Amino acid sequence: MLESSNSIVAPNKRVLPSPDRSPQYDLFATFFGNPRDLSNSIELWDAIPKYSVSARAQNMLRDDNGRLPVHKHDFHYHPSPKADNPTFKCTMSLQPASIETEHGRQDYFPSADEELVEEIIKKIFSDQHYGLHDVTNKESWVRFSLNMIRKELKARGKTRSFQEIKQSLEILTRTVLEVEIEGQGNRKTAYTAPILNDMTRVKRSDWLEDPDAMWTARLPALLSHAINNLSYRQFNYRILMQLSSPMARWLHKRLSHEYTNASITTPYQILFSTISRDSGLLHHNRTSSNIQTLERALAELVQHEVLYFHESKKRNSGRTITDVLYTLTPHSNFVSEMKAANARVRDARTKLAQN
């Protein structure tokens, strides 16, 4: 429950810090357009392929005791503005969550369901009735209920039970994410934390009786850092939640964050190998099958008027496909969204400089 406009009281009565009003949080929660349809992509946080191991792949990886190995994946991260910053090589490690189920204890990696739940929690956080941001200590807190998540999923065409939502929250809380970022020379920066921290839960008997009972969680430090430094961008949350393919959602986020100069006359080019490396979502043994997965995702983006059309040019060595260059032409709706996002960035920087 909210005790005042500046403090969140968890169900166990532990009072969280009450920071001064945060101009950075005000800017994060203010959108250029219909706020119901918009949310924020977080630069480094959303570049980490933390939802890349599908439920099907996990079923194949589990041993007879329900255990999963640590999952590692290499990807590249290029901070904005790209012209001024180098590309960083990164390695992600996921320590799976151990969850008690009706079939016994099993390990889980976060996947598509957890991705959607996290997006909703970030969206709830952007409503200042449910969030708190401490700019000094770089902490961000959110309160929510299972019913809030369930209603939002249903409104976006995704139906999940209370038990399924609770399990997703457990996976987000118990999965340990580690990212190593290579710097200059042999220097590396490491980040290690659960996806959601310090979760204050409601007991099963209580949430069955009252699904509106409030939970509390601390959001990732990388998100708090992004709020303080304005390293986030507005994107179309409504479309993201409508997309059925994890690959389509990844592409939509990537385009929304990187394609700042979106124009029908300035298409976006990206290699198949780059998408495979940075998304971690292409798991088929055959390259042709992975290309089909990607092209279905691109077709879905055309259907939802993110892209107007796309072209591909295969690179071959003999009869073997070594890579594919994709040229993506944005839909006019997406171009308008990017212009609004750019205007919001300019406005936020001006306002923050004035504070």
Rank of each mutant, 00 (worst) to 15 (best):
L44I: 10
I321E: 15
N261L: 07
A262F: 00
K89R: 15
R346Y: 15
F144H: 00
D84P: 05
E164D: 15
R233T: 01
R174N: 02
D212K: 13
L251R: 02
P81Q: 13
S279K: 03
K253V: 11
A112T: 05
E180G: 07
K351E: 09
S273A: 05
N40R: 07
H78L: 14
F334R: 00
T287A: 13
S288L: 12
F28C: 08
A299V: 04
Q167F: 10
P81V: 09
H257W: 07
I227K: 06
N342F: 11
H284N: 14
T91M: 15
G157I: 01
D63G: 04
F109R: 01
A47E: 08
L116T: 11
Q58N: 03
R62A: 04
E100D: 12
N34V: 06
S205Q: 13
T189C: 06
T260H: 10
I124E: 02
L240T: 05
R286S: 12
F235M: 09
Q234E: 08
D127F: 10
L68G: 01
G185M: 11
Q58R: 06
P211A: 05
S244Q: 15
S224R: 00
N6C: 07
E43T: 08
S145R: 09
E178S: 12
K72P: 02
H304D: 04
E295S: 02
G183P: 09
E337S: 04
G280K: 02
N290Q: 11
H304T: 00
S205D: 13
N290G: 10
V345I: 14
S273T: 05
T293I: 10
A297T: 01
A55P: 00
T30E: 01
N355S: 11
I42M: 07
S256L: 02
N342E: 12
Y51K: 00
V176L: 06
F31S: 07
L325S: 11
R315K: 15
R238I: 11
K339Q: 09
S80R: 14
D134T: 07
P11Y: 08
I321A: 13
K166P: 01
S288E: 15
P110S: 05
R143D: 06
L38Y: 02
Y237E: 07
I165T: 03
H284L: 07
A213R: 12
E311T: 08
K158N: 09
S205Y: 09
Y259K: 04
H78E: 10
D37I: 03
A340K: 03
V335F: 02
T329Q: 03
T322I: 05
Q292F: 09
S279F: 01
Y232A: 04
V345F: 10
H257V: 12
E337V: 00
S256P: 03
S289M: 14
N85H: 09
L282P: 04
S22T: 01
T136W: 12
Y237V: 07
Y51L: 05
H225N: 09
K82H: 15
T320N: 05
A55E: 03
L177K: 01
D347F: 08
D107P: 02
T327Q: 14
R14G: 04
Y268T: 05
P79V: 04
I171D: 00
N285E: 14
R344A: 12
T87W: 11
S245E: 01
H304Y: 05
V176C: 04
A57E: 03
I171Y: 02
I239H: 01
D64E: 13
P220A: 03
T159S: 14
R233W: 03
L222N: 01
P96G: 02
T200C: 11
P79A: 06
N186C: 13
P81R: 04
G280W: 01
